[in-house]
Nucleic acid binder design. Structure first.
Ligand SMILES: NC(=O)c1ccc[n+]([C@@H]2O[C@H](COP(=O)([O-])OP(=O)(O)OC[C@H]3O[C@@H](n4cnc5c(N)ncnc54)[C@H](O)[C@@H]3O)[C@@H](O)[C@H]2O)c1
Ligand SMILES: NC(=O)c1ccc[n+]([C@@H]2O[C@H](COP(=O)([O-])OP(=O)(O)OC[C@H]3O[C@@H](n4cnc5c(N)ncnc54)[C@H](O)[C@@H]3O)[C@@H](O)[C@H]2O)c1
Lengths: 209, 209
DNA sequence: AATTACTTGTGCTTGCGTTCACATGCACAA
DNA sequence: TTGTGCATGTGAACGCAAGCACAAGTAATT
């Protein structure tokens, strides 16, 4: 893959999964190629923004024609390192955790939740979607299983200790749904999704005055 | 409330719920006042960023002393229009929808999901957390109930039609969990949370090379 | 070969957001 | 009343991101 020497904006990285998803669905709808203009309308991003985002990584389109959807999707998968399956572990098999385990949408990006943990003795040993819930004390097996990604869906007050345990088990990427700031070594990436926080902005936007 | 004439950055609005949450939890831990430095460490934001964010709305602190947590929380609630309870409707009582209905964390910001809809005849009439699931065909009652906020947790291919129905029912703010771009009139605010998209960035960050 | 229609890739401008650095102001003590 | 310590509030500098506008390149037609 041809690579530019420029710094890549983090906002660009943030949009790439959105683009990839859009391309996959366009393919499913029977399209084979698309212009930046049409694609921009489809995913809700300005067309020159899209062209610029791609330009950081190479020249993926054909002037006067547009982009080959299949080819572009492969390029983006490569950039995001989504070419191979990524195994992930989920800690906290509660309401949200169960929903995420059952969510087929993660497959689109090549993710597979292959290990689930909890500390509730009533839940340990049971299964969700054919995956047995394990005792969180056995988190150490992630190293053996070579799992690098952890998803935290435990209550807020258990989030930091869970993160610590994940790091100890060799995890280098954490997706955190608990509404709190988590401290990790700087070689570990944490992405926190604060669902309630998104909703909390709504009244500001929709209330007159 | 004293108001500056400056334009307020959207990123500032995005951080306010985070601040409010941090303040509430600090209060629960017994603190009464906090400095921007300490608070910054607590929520994971640079301290001068915090001071600047507040400065768009007034002078909430005391020089040499810090911020009165209770007072600051009230100010932020006022800015975000979270002083009164906001009723919300949720469409799609599936895995994710059920988790969100059961989530107590929305109360912190004053949200109350008072109406739930689905189109599955097996679900209509049943209850989740004492809330009866209604037929989505009856979405029109939102106008009578004066509900302004809708939460979409239906499958992707039903998201746009659900949004259309919500808009028709008078909703002006939509929190959308479906992985797709939704088109609405410009007096309606849509916030889309693409959970899988967050996870999809992880391999880029944690993979060497 | 020349013309037309179309769309990409990108230099440049503009705008937005973050961080620095310090003057300002408060509290408390001597 | 003066001095010391501390933390806020903000102008100014910096850095990052978005969008414009057009040259460059492709395809199809005459
Ligand atoms: N439910 C939602 O829609 C929602 C929305 C936004 C954020 N969240 C956040 O996600 C997290 C989980 O929410 P939930 O509604 O699924 O809660 P839940 O109580 O249904 O589930 C939490 C699970 O974690 C387990 N657990 C508790 N402590 C543990 C520990 N130390 N180690 C391992 N497992 C442990 C519990 O046994 C339980 O199964 C919370 O932090 C919550 O704030 C939830
Ligand atoms: N489950 C997750 O963890 C998760 C994560 C990220 C995104 N999402 C997204 O959230 C949405 C819901 O996911 P889910 O896992 O809860 O799916 P689900 O299938 O469990 O639930 C969907 C619900 O919507 C109902 N429904 C379908 N069409 C409808 C219509 N036209 N009107 C009203 N109700 C309708 C169904 O009867 C069902 O109860 C999907 O768009 C999914 O992509 C889910």
């Amino acid at each position: 893959m041809y690579m530019k020497h420029k710094r890549i904006p983090d906002e660009t990285i943030r949009r790439l999964p959105l683009y990839l998803r859009g391309l996959v669905f366009l393919l499913q709808e029977g399209h084979l190629s698309v212009s930046s203009e049409k694609f921009g309308d489809y995913v809700g991003v300005n067309s020159s923004q899209i062209r610029k985002d791609f330009s950081y990584f190479g020249e993926f389109g054909v002037r006067g024609v547009g982009y080959d959807i299949r080819k572009l999707a492969i390029e983006i998968k490569g950039i995001l390192k989504l070419n191979e399956i990524h195994k992930a572990a989920l800690i906290g098999a509660g309401n949200l955790g169960s929903a995420i385990i059952s969510y087929p949408g993660l497959q689109l990006y090549g993710f597979d939740i292959t290990a689930v943990f909890d500390n509730n003795t009533h839940k340990i040993g049971k299964k969700i979607r054919d995956i047995e819930i394990l005792d969180v004390a056995k988190l150490g097996i992630l190293k053996k299983k070579n799992i690098q990604i952890g998803i935290i869906t435990v209550p807020r007050n258990a989030a930091q200790e869970t993160a610590d345990a994940l790091v100890k088990a060799g995890v280098t990427g954490i997706l955190n749904f608990s509404p709190c700031y988590i401290i990790v070594p700087k070689n570990v990436k944490v992405i926190t999704i604060d669902i309630a926080g998104y909703l909390a902005r709504m009244p500001y936007y929709i209330t007159a005055g």
